[in-house]
């Protein structure tokens, strides 16, 4: 059971692209040898900005809703686990439907793997691997009451895609957490939609 007074706070703006998290993630026992963290370049031509992405652990995970083999489960502590190995049939519904682009389906293995908050560590009272090694604390795993002393920004766990609300266990840091973060594709597409 992951302690409920701890939270994962993500601040992509702090990422320095050192890839420590990528290396550390592969050490996690639940997917040993495979890194489940995504480190993307924001816009390689214009900027050195990199973006680390871990699973946000949705309250009502879309990946689980679209899974035909009912292989994705959310435990009582709010952690959404990788697809159960006996059940996953590698259809990629989860990979294509996740609002945050997190799961990875390994074809050949017919297996979806994803960040599971380093369950082997966090369930025993340790930090996730990525948060342990992140030098700029773009990935921060601390007690929830501690984060106010460490950041000007505040944790937000509420996202809006069109009219669909997605609430998560992990938080992203913003100045005004009372309004959901609107994920609007117009931000990505030059010239708007």
């Amino acid at each position: 059971m992951v302690p409920q007074d701890y939270g994962f706070f993500i601040d992509p703006q702090r990422c320095i692209g050192c890839r420590s998290c990528v290396g550390a993630c592969a050490e996690c026992g639940t997917h040993r040898g495979r890194s489940m963290i995504h480190l993307d370049e924001m816009d390689r031509f214009d900027s050195p900005q990199t973006v680390p992405t871990v699973c946000m652990h949705c309250e009502d995970p879309i990946c689980a809703q679209v899974c035909p083999s009912d292989a994705i489960k959310r435990s009582e502590d709010g952690v959404v686990h990788a697809a159960q190995k006996p059940r996953c049939i590698g259809c990629q519904n989860c990979e294509l439907s996740c609002p945050f682009g997190v799961p990875i389906v390994f074809s050949g293995l017919e297996q979806m793997l994803k960040c599971d908050l380093c369950y082997d560590r966090t369930s025993e009272g340790h930090k996730p691997m990525c948060a342990t090694v992140c030098p700029s604390q773009a990935l921060l795993f601390v007690r929830k009451d501690e984060v106010a002393n460490l950041r000007h920004n505040k944790p937000l766990r509420d996202f809006l895609i069109g009219s669909v609300r997605v609430k998560t266990k992990n938080a992203i840091m913003v100045p005004d957490p009372d309004t959901p973060l609107h994920l609007d594709a117009a931000l990505l597409i030059d010239g708007g939609l």
Partner: peptide, 15 residues
């Protein structure tokens, strides 16, 4: 999936 990940950072950056 990659653009979805970038979109989260873009939205946070805009905020």
């Amino acid at each position: 999936p990659r653009c979805k990940r970038r979109l989260v950072a873009k939205a946070q950056g805009e905020r």
